[in-house]
Amino acid sequence: MKAVLCRDFAPYSGLQVEEVDDPVAGEGMVIIDVKAAGVNFPDILLVEGKYQMKPPLPFIPGGECAGVISDVGPGVKGFKPGDRVIAATMLNAFAEKTAAHVSAIAPMPASMPFEEGAALITTYATTIHALKQRGELKAGETLLVLGAGGGVGTAAVQLGKAMGATVIAAARGAEKLAAAREAGADMTIDYDAEDLKARCKDLTGGKGIDVVYDAVGGPYSEPAMRAMGWGGRFLVIGFAAGDIPKMPLNLALLNSRDIRGVFWGAWAARDPKGNGANMAELFALYEQGKIKPMVSHTFALEDVTKAFDALMNREVRGKAVLVTG
């Protein structure tokens, strides 16, 4: 089969598609004929050796996919060849076929296209865990989403609205803000052209933000923290801006604010039942039309470096996916 193969931790520009052996369905595993695979910033970090874990070389990158089961291994119950599924793989999704444990797959709604299925897992599963378990977002509260035009950002806007929050979307430039409005944002802030803290205070009538969803980091985290009101919860999702901010801890003391880390993958491994409930809720919200993964770019498997370029150049609105056929 064809697969993107990472042979060395190096700039992603060196990635190539190669012929590799087909995966085999081991105990509790299924083989998925991949139709689409989601492209995420952590994929780039893994390829370049900058992620918190370094897989053994060589490896196939790609943390999520959607496709059709073609084989099942011993001990598999509840799934059969021909089933349409999505899978959280961490690795091995950028290929024509991948093996996944049954605990990492879920049946796709019949109405869901493969491209949307491939764009759902990482961003929406991370975000529902962030807003629900970590942020404890309540109906009527105000949610500030940083990086609101990207994959996790548009997911946070949609889920925040579905949970009954007033959503303020902050992003860079008119195109990203348009994507956030399309996702359902109530208000928007261009944080390259406006004072983030002042605008948040203004838009909340001086009360401040209840929950901050920060997948960006860099220079935007501290003003967002300063814009929070009493008992606010600051969710640390990631650092797409590149720099990890050094937050003055007196900002947590003032107004009794919390800083809460979000690591969905580790939590899901510790609480598979809770993660399963979250996934069921996501599928229900999709069927109700309350969430819909936004896919602005599709690329062939052979164009993986172009997909990463689009992500790094901030051209993607929502998500980019690789397709195999």
Rank of each mutant, 00 (worst) to 15 (best):
M225A: 07
N40P: 12
P113S: 13
G318N: 07
D43R: 09
L253N: 06
N313Q: 15
P81E: 04
G147I: 11
D21L: 12
T305L: 07
V34T: 15
M312C: 03
L45W: 15
Q52F: 13
N92R: 15
G67A: 11
V68K: 14
R260Q: 07
A66W: 10
P58G: 04
A284S: 01
V34H: 13
P293E: 08
E175H: 06
K207I: 15
S13V: 12
D309L: 08
H129R: 01
A183M: 05
G73C: 05
G75H: 09
G231W: 06
L159V: 00
L131F: 02
F283P: 07
I105W: 10
A268M: 02
L301D: 00
D195P: 06
L131G: 02
V323W: 01
E141S: 12
R226V: 06
F239G: 03
T154R: 06
E96R: 09
V76I: 11
K35Q: 05
L235K: 00
I31D: 08
E64K: 03
V85C: 13
M228Y: 04
G28N: 13
I259H: 01
T154Q: 06
L5A: 04
G238C: 07
A277F: 03
A320G: 07
G82E: 02
G149L: 06
K306N: 07
F239S: 04
A139I: 14
N250R: 05
T127E: 02
D192H: 12
G149D: 08
V102P: 01
V236C: 08
G38D: 15
F299R: 01
R84F: 13
P61V: 03
D43M: 12
D303A: 11
G208V: 10
Q288A: 15
P23V: 07
D271P: 11
